[in-house]
Simulated assay, not measured.
Amino acid sequence: MHFFEDHSNELIISGILVLIIIVLRIISTKLVRRFAKSSDRIEHRTNLVIKYIHLLINILACIGFIIIWGVRPKDIVLAVSSIATVVGVAMVAQWSILSNITSGVILFFSFPFKIGDTIKILDKDYPIVGEIEDISAFYVILKSTEGEQVIYPNNLLFQKGISIVHNFEEEKEFTD
């Protein structure tokens, strides 16, 4: 019973933080969904961006709880540096995955092309022309003009020039 008496301030502040987390998650979800609806975004991409935002909110909440419950700054620095070291080593090995996820989020908000568009990737070594079949967190699936299915990483879409090919059928006069 002494726990509640000794830590009443921390419990109240933690309760307020939980309410703030819930409100932030609801507001961020509504804002992203409103943005997606107004710009005709794809539902699974919308859900993916919402998950990333919720992850960020949860990380900030953990930091808040650590501060509220009075963990010594020296211990926080030690824990964060240890975690950063492990994550840093893992990210060096997995930098392309993080790069593709980041590119996927940027593609969601900038949305320079959509499913059904025909694009040309301006790569001098391996140029690709294809119709976009799907856009995911890690890659874009294209159907090439030869009928091949090409899976192209999102991060390379930002490194290469891309042009959207418009197939306007012009009426031409037939001559013999």
Rank of each mutant, 00 (worst) to 15 (best):
S96R: 15
T85N: 07
W95K: 15
C62F: 14
I42H: 09
V80H: 08
V71F: 14
A36K: 09
M91Q: 07
V77E: 11
L31Q: 12
R72Y: 04
L60D: 05
H44V: 03
S82M: 14
V77D: 05
V32S: 03
I42T: 09
S82R: 05
K30P: 01
V86R: 09
I101W: 06
S103C: 09
F65P: 02
I68R: 10
R34F: 09
G64F: 01
H54I: 14
P73Y: 04
A90K: 04
A36T: 09
L78T: 00
S39N: 14
I67L: 07
S82E: 10
T85V: 13
H54C: 03
G70H: 04
R45N: 11
T102G: 08
R34L: 11
I50A: 05
V86N: 05
L60F: 13
S82H: 09
S39T: 15
R41Q: 13
G70V: 01
G64A: 12
H44L: 01
V32R: 03
I57A: 00
S39K: 10
N58Y: 11
V89S: 09
I67D: 03
C62R: 02
I59N: 04
W95F: 15
T102D: 06
I53A: 06
I53K: 03
A79L: 14
K51Q: 13
R45W: 02
D75V: 00
N58M: 11
L48Y: 13
I83P: 00
T46W: 11
V49L: 14
K51N: 09
G64R: 05
I66A: 08
I53Y: 03
I50T: 05
D75R: 04
T102M: 12
G70D: 06
E43C: 03
L60T: 04
S99N: 13
S99I: 06
V87H: 05
K37Y: 10
L55Q: 07
V80M: 12
K74Q: 08
V49P: 07
S99R: 15
G64E: 06
S103Y: 12
G70E: 06
L98S: 10
F65C: 02
G88T: 05
I67T: 03
A93Q: 08
R33T: 06
Y52M: 14
V80G: 03
T46K: 08
I83T: 04
N47M: 12
S99G: 12
I53R: 00
L98A: 15
I68G: 04
T46S: 14
S39F: 09
D75P: 00
S81T: 12
V80W: 11
G70C: 04
W95A: 08
T46M: 12
I101E: 03
K74F: 07
L55K: 02
L31N: 07
I83M: 10
V49K: 10
A90M: 14
P73I: 00
I53E: 06
H54K: 13
N100I: 03
L31P: 01
R72E: 11
I83S: 09
T85P: 02
R33A: 08
R34C: 02
A84K: 06
K37T: 01
A93I: 12
I59Y: 02
C62I: 15
A90G: 11
I53Q: 05
I50V: 13
T85Y: 11
I59V: 13
V32N: 08
G88A: 09
I66T: 13
R45G: 06
S82D: 08
D40P: 00
S38G: 13
W95E: 06
I101A: 10
K74T: 01
R72P: 00
G64T: 01
